[in-house]
């Protein structure tokens, strides 16, 4: 198929960027979206131009590296997948596709379609862990039975890949879904309850410091999340935060 790509090009963080048109031909339905960009980049290099820079790594939807706003939607038009899992059969011959970076104050553009998401790391560093040293002498793993329902819910929350689609989808660029997923993973487990108060307070404080916006419950994050992280996690984090404020 033949396509017109409109791609955001930006030299670096301090330069201004713009959308540039790239017509492209001979794209097959079995190609992934990123393989389509590979084809474009090979053509650009052979012509002596600089390739389009975009983040990607595992190309199987789990590392959370790939991003991209594709026609205004994080990870493109399909639900519950990342950009690397999107295939060109989803598009039609003659389509125009607009490709932009994930945009948020807390995610500055580094080059072209690549953004800096280290704010997410700093939120995790503020409290996204259980303070247990490595020893080989912790209690036996089966000493604490955990009911399957809670264990499964905790797993669902923990399956967040930290891609930032929730932030890109939100009109306020809020990171509530991301932060809430980690808070929930631990809040749902007995091991996590010991530090629950400090954890939620520290993580929310860091989230605010990073310049993410407020949550106004529009739910766009849940819709666009490639891993289907539920809004219930935000409700749970709000409860945890309220409890922490009362108890703390």
């Amino acid at each position: 198929m033949k396509l017109l790509l409109k791609i955001w090009r930006q030299k670096d963080g301090s330069s201004k960027g713009k959308l540039v048109d790239y017509p492209i031909d001979h794209i097959e339905g079995d190609m992934s979206f990123l393989e389509m960009l590979d084809v474009l980049n090979q053509e650009l290099i052979e012509k002596g131009d600089e390739p389009v820079v975009f983040d990607h790594d595992c190309r199987e939807g789990i590392c959370g590296t790939c991003s991209l706003m594709i026609n205004g939607e994080p990870h493109g038009p399909d639900r519950l997948i990342t950009t690397c899992q999107l295939h060109m059969r989803r598009f039609n011959d003659g389509d125009t596709i607009v490709i932009e970076p994930f945009r948020a104050t807390a995610f500055p553009v580094l080059k072209d379609l690549m953004v800096d998401r280290s704010a997410f790391d700093r939120i995790q560093q503020a409290g996204g862990y259980i303070s247990v040293n490595t020893s080989g002498n912790t209690v036996d793993a089966n000493a604490i039975p955990i009911d399957k329902h809670h264990a499964d819910e905790s797993f669902e929350a923990a399956s967040c890949i930290g891609c930032g689609a929730c932030v890109a989808a939100c009109k306020n660029a809020s990171a509530m879904l991301f932060t809430a997923a980690k808070v929930s993973q631990f809040a749902l487990l007995p091991q996590g309850k010991v530090e629950a108060i400090d954890r939620v307070q520290n993580m929310v404080r860091q989230m605010d410091l990073e310049g993410f916006g407020n949550c106004t419950n529009t739910g766009a994050c849940e819709v666009e999340c490639p891993k289907g992280i539920s809004l219930e996690n935000i409700a749970r984090m709000n409860r945890e935060y309220l409890m922490a404020t009362v108890k703390g």
Binding site: V132, G136, A141
Partner: peptide, 17 residues
């Protein structure tokens, strides 16, 4: 043991183990 202590949510049976 270490991973469970860290909060890694392994699959469990209905009895909680």
């Amino acid at each position: 043991d270490q991973c469970v202590a860290q909060g890694v949510p392994f699959a469990r049976e209905y009895g909680g183990l």
